[in-house]
Amino acid sequence: MKGSLRLYGAALKNTLASRLAYRIDFFLSVFIMLVFELIIPFATFLIYRSGGAFPGWSFGEVLLVQAVFLLAKGVVNPFFAGIVWNTLIRVREGTYDLLLIKPRSVLFMTLLTSIDVEDLGKLLGGVGVLVLALSGLPAAAPENWLAFVLLFACSVCVFMSFSFFMAGSCFKWVGNSRVYEIFDCLSAFAMYPMSIFSKGLRVLITAVIPLAIMAFIPASVLLGKSVEYLAFALGSGAVFLAAGAFFWTRMLRSYTSAGG
């Protein structure tokens, strides 16, 4: 464990040093990532300001749902989500060879080489929106905060599992450069209160594909609202992560390398 942490530290240092070789591009990228994350909350603000609303939800409450989504994404993207592009590129070029000749778990090596420090802008954006949302809402009880932390961890797990599924598909579906856009479209459902969707869709995005746990359920707990399928969503978050990691590992066997 100590060795793995030391290795992660070395990888983080190298990634940062590598990215800082082009400082202007780095700072500009972080800034753009931050701004880009604020587009949906800003659009929501415009909807509420013009008199529109999501029924039963105030602007602050919707903003909290979006803040939780952006925060979880901000945690996952710099440290885990890069696995998708890393796998996509390495499979196409055959440079996975270089990870397979290292005496470490291939998944761990892939994560080490996937760290994307400019995505810290997304984390900053998530933190910023969360602070803004919380400032306009009544303070939650400590037990709600405790439940939120647990559920937020589940949210991160679901984000990670999606990364594993997308990356795993790149072993078979070589050069699948649109995979992340598919995920973006799908995960957009998670940025809004579930109550705006039909019951069938709610069941689908809570119990089957656990999108609701990415933001809606943790935010609802913090808001003191009652939540449907809570236990099921919690369980499916853990199962989804295990399934994602298993899928990635199985798909690794499809790796055929490339060229000479």
């Binding site: 060795g3 030391r6 290795l7 530290g9 070395a10 990888a11 240092k13 190298n14 040093a17 590598s18 990215r19 070789a21 082009y22 055959g94 440079t95 060879d97 270089l98 000749i101 290292k102 005496p103 470490r104 090596m109 060229g259 000479g260």
Partner: peptide
């Protein structure tokens, strides 16, 4: 075992090789 691939570099392009060596030290313990 060790391997050198003439067409696939193990070094990180934007940083000095010494940093990649340190990384290898951590990988192999």
């Amino acid at each position: 075992i060790g391997a050198v691939f003439g067409q696939k570099s193990q070094l990180v392009f934007d940083i000095p090789p010494i940093d990649s060596f340190h990384m290898n030290r951590a990988i192999y313990g």
